[in-house]
């Protein structure tokens, strides 16, 4: 049985089992992201509630760096573009392009994580620790959770990259689209964090 026939069989199989016609895995991912919104909502709310409540420094305005984070945010946003290209490629069953853009997405995700490690190290040397004050506790827990999401995404993408050499990735359009949904969501969360935590901090300061 050829690949086309297999794909057709699979597709038939899917339609059979989906009342709405939307693949189960995509509905699952959307529902998970709704749940994840509440995770990040709680984390970001905690940061906002505790903003300005730290009893001792360093305070956010002393350590947050807009230029560095703008660069890392740009990298993360570009990775979303690559992810979209990967999904487009897998939908045309273009294995080479799929592989390329998945790798690019994961690689840019890694660069973002590099920026984050740099930021954490830098902050640590300037005295911001988890134990130091409320800013440290809320900042590291929130951005750490986001970083963990990015790291899981990178691992997932690299797994697809390796898989593309052993299995038939052109069959996995729905799965890769689900990975893509996750990846875009993690990026959108970062836009909120970048705005609320980094940019708003400097409103009226002109920093």
């Amino acid at each position: 049985m050829g690949h086309a026939a297999i794909a057709e069989h699979d597709q038939h199989h899917h339609v059979e089992h989906s009342y709405t016609g939307i693949p189960n895995k995509k509905v699952l991912m959307w529902a998970f992201l709704a749940s994840d919104c509440m995770f990040f909502g709680t984390l970001i709310s905690t940061y906002i509630i505790y903003h300005g409540k730290s009893l001792v420094g360093p305070y956010p305005v002393e350590v947050l760096s807009i230029p560095v984070t703008t660069a890392s945010s740009f990298v993360l946003l570009m990775s979303s573009l690559f992810m979209a290209l990967a999904v487009a490629a897998v939908n045309r069953k273009d294995i080479g392009q799929t592989r390329l853009w998945i790798f690019a997405t994961a690689f840019f995700g890694l660069i973002f994580l590099g920026f984050q490690s740099f930021e954490f190290t830098e902050f640590f040397h300037r005295g911001v620790t988890l134990q130091k004050n409320l800013f440290g506790s809320t900042f590291y827990t929130m951005t750490g959770t986001h970083g963990l999401h990015v790291a899981i995404g990178v691992l997932w993408l690299f797994s697809w990259f390796v898989y593309s050499y052993f299995g038939d990735i052109s069959d996995k359009a729905v799965d890769i689209e689900s990975t893509g949904l996750y990846w875009h969501f993690v990026d959108i969360v970062w836009i909120v964090i970048f705005t609320v935590i980094y940019l708003v901090e400097f409103v009226g300061i002109g920093g």
Partner: peptide, 12 residues
């Protein structure tokens, strides 16, 4: 050792 609920560090 974080301070989320540590009143001494301003936690609520």
């Amino acid at each position: 050792g974080a301070n989320f609920f540590n009143v001494a560090a301003g936690g609520l």
